Simulated scan of single mutants.
Amino acid sequence: MTMSGWSADRIPDQSGRRYVITGANSGLGAAMAEALTAAGAEVTIACRNLDKAERVASSIGDRARVAELNLADLSSVREFATGVDDFDVLINNAGVMALPFARTVDGFEMQMGTNHLGHFALTGLLLPKIGERVVTMSSLAQNWGRIHADDLNWERRRYNRWSAYGDSKLANMVFGRELSRRLTESGSPVRSVLAHPGYAATGLMRQSETPVDYLMRAGEMLHVGQSAAQGALPALYAATEDVANGSYWGPDFVVRGAPASARYRSAADDQPTRDRLWVASEKLTGVTFEV
């Protein structure tokens, strides 16, 4: 199903609605914040780099506020969650990509720790305050990921930065789908939906310190992909339109285009895989969900 011609100016009136967007200090997140506030919403820009966040917020105006959140530090996640009032929509957007091996404050592999475990903990802590939906950003990289629930932190495997990134984005997909199931079974009115940006020209795609960076730059120069504002459209559609719980949205031409229903790996619907990842995530983060 393709939403032909759907663009940010078709976002329904968002007056009175409140959003929390992680990593909205640049790229896709900043584009989402700008589009949502233009439609009348109030947005909390939740991120680690407060200087960049303040610049984005000042360009938007009084409908945007900044709050510190470091997804690579569970104490920061807990502090942020404690300070947030009730709101409507959480957009789990922040992420790191193809980093050299590093660990978070809590000892998690940095990509899994930031992209999945940090958002898992944040969502669990905020869920009682969320009125309408959770939008989790996955990626085309989920297509090469695997869920190693017994080794999420690369303690038994030889580290590969691109495999680690794919694993973390498949984990986002598995988490979002399982959360939708649990919300439905608990009778909650909250929805869990997912999106991916296709190939969007953001700085995230040119920081791997590998030859792939040159391919990314070439792709941007040849306009293979799309702008951050265009890449944000599937998530904006998922966040503002009446979409089904558990649905997944991306560009209609896969790497670019208007929002459309997207395909995902069958692993995301494998219940034993879901269960193993959920249990491992709860154990590592110490966060349990009320659903």
Rank of each mutant, 00 (worst) to 15 (best):
E209G: 09
R263D: 12
Q14W: 07
S163M: 09
A98T: 03
C47F: 08
G131N: 15
Q230H: 12
G124H: 00
V96K: 04
W144N: 13
V254Q: 12
S180Y: 03
A72W: 02
G176F: 01
M112A: 05
G29C: 10
D106C: 06
R256Y: 11
W249P: 09
G131I: 07
N115C: 10
R18T: 15
G107V: 04
S192C: 08
V224M: 14
S281K: 03
T2S: 14
M205W: 08
T104L: 03
L69T: 05
A260I: 00
H223W: 10
G250A: 10
R217W: 11
G16L: 04
L179M: 12
D151W: 01
L236V: 09
L222T: 10
A31C: 07
T273W: 13
P100S: 11
P234V: 04
V20L: 15
G23W: 02
F80Q: 01
V96W: 03
E42I: 02
D213I: 06
D167V: 01
G5H: 02
L50Q: 14
L233G: 03
L140Y: 03
L179P: 00
G61K: 11
E68L: 07
N172L: 02
D73A: 07
R191A: 13
D252N: 15
G225C: 00
P100W: 04
N92Q: 11
W154K: 01
S261Q: 12
E34D: 10
M205T: 14
A67H: 12
L127R: 14
A244I: 04
I130C: 05
T285P: 06
Y237D: 05
L36G: 05
Y159M: 07
Y214F: 12
W154Q: 00
F87T: 01
A149H: 14
A200S: 15
A53S: 07
T2L: 07
I147W: 00
W162N: 05
I45H: 05
M97I: 01
D13E: 11
Y199I: 12
T273Q: 11
N160W: 08
D167H: 05
V43K: 02
I147F: 01
G246K: 06
A31D: 04
